[in-house]
Amino acid sequence: MDSVTQIESRNRVQLIISAKSSGSGGRGSKLPGLPRAETQKRFTRALENAAIEVFEMMVGSPLCSSDQVTLPLVADYTSMIGLAGDICGVLSFRCSNKSAGQIAAKMLGTEERASAECTRDALGEICNMVAGAFKAQVTDIIDQCMLSVPMVVSGKDYQLYPLADGLRIQISKVFEGDLIWITLDLHGG
């Protein structure tokens, strides 16, 4: 498949996603010089706007609000992308098997169930575009930030341990009646 890295969790695995690696020029994160609460608020709004924009434009299905922010213990699909530069961290997107299939089918413009390969490709692109749109929302406070190749994990039997020790921004939205979750774990502060 394309350049999205894939992992299928047949056996129970632990994924340790480190956001501690240095960004461009060996620097760590440089979270904006705003008070932490202000940064959290600003980044949360940017992440929400990014997700809404991506789903409206590329999936063709609006996201609805949800108050349920708590991450699920299990999600059928998790896609992740790394950010490095003025901010370092990991953006992850989680959804159910049903949502993954619907997202892929809508992106492909078909009503048929997309193949597993296309589903992973679609979720990798969602993660990539949400991260890109997030960056575009905060260009006034972040100059340089590169994105990694996305990675997609399918299967439920795993746990994620992001080793970021900075901000955690977590949002949930409703897509076609089901919850989806987007998390941004940032290092430093």
């Binding site: 498949m1 394309d2 350049s3 999205v4 590329m58 892929a104 992106m107 492909l108 413009g109 296309c118 490709d121 679609a122 990798g124 692109e125």
Partner: peptide
């Protein structure tokens, strides 16, 4: 584009 899904979206 390295994403086949994205190539379809651009085409459409």
């Amino acid at each position: 584009d390295d994403s086949s899904v994205m190539r379809k979206i651009v085409d459409r």
